[in-house]
Design a protein around this nucleic acid. Structure first.
Lengths: 133, 133
DNA sequence: CCGGATCCAAAATGATACTG
DNA sequence: CAGTATCATTTTGGATCCGG
């Protein structure tokens, strides 16, 4: 994707391509949850593994690497025994965390309604089959 | 993605906040972009395919099915020639669109900074290898 | 023609074993 | 503790065919 960057005054809704590019940063299953669990301060690898329960060790590594590469968090290694690696949001990471707050609140507020919608949809007799892979 | 939405294993109580469960709704590559492109009114399948360029026909179908099932949008079929299927946000879908606005704006505002961070990271001599799959 | 379903190849992901 | 290597499973994308 191009290195061209727009001015900060650009409003959302004017540049679909770039929006798509950056949604690639957080548009996966784990990134937003990792960011969320770092919002209260630095965390170690295993602490995150427990907090974001359900994530595999491999995907936590991959997700953290990606967020570090994107400048969302920092990775600090202390060469001691046992090893100690801590992850912390950068200033930009904290702005991301703030930007995702409404979405997380929406999730919590609407999960019940969505359960209902799913049940109603699955009860429909004319439900189309989902294409397989 | 569509097949994994709300499996039977996602019972209430497994996750105290349940944010993970609901992030499964929009935590994929395409859902937020589809919702975004429906914010200005109903759109047809092919219009969405063009707007969310890069999405495959199959993934658009799967994503739309999932969002319909979750009560985010409605699917209206008119049996005419040529076929006419239009998708439109529900009231709940519109609240989701509002909740995602800050994130989309953040994306546009920070894409340049992220490009820089990636370049700096890739220039580091000690970049760890990413685990393969 | 438009919307969608199926088959196949590629990529992403999860589980497990192993290492410093 | 914090990863890495490897393999099995799942998801995604492209091409193609189908129904109206």
């Amino acid at each position: 994707m191009g290195a061209t960057r727009g001015g900060p005054g650009e409003a959302a809704g004017e540049d679909p391509c770039r929006t798509r590019a950056v949604l690639g940063i957080v548009g996966d299953k784990w990134s937003l949850l990792v960011v969320r669990h770092l919002s209260e301060g630095p965390r170690r690898f295993t602490e995150l593994k427990r907090a974001v329960d359900g994530i595999s060790q491999r995907m936590l590594t991959v997700t953290l690497r990606g967020l570090e590469r994107d400048g969302i968090l920092t990775r600090t290694v202390r060469n001691v025994m046992p090893p100690h690696v801590s992850y912390e949001l950068t200033p930009m990471g904290r702005t991301l965390r703030e930007a995702t707050a409404p979405l997380l609140e929406w999730s919590i507020a609407h999960v019940g309604h969505i359960d209902d919608a799913r049940a109603a949809y699955d009860a429909r007799p004319d439900t189309p089959a989902t294409p397989g892979g």
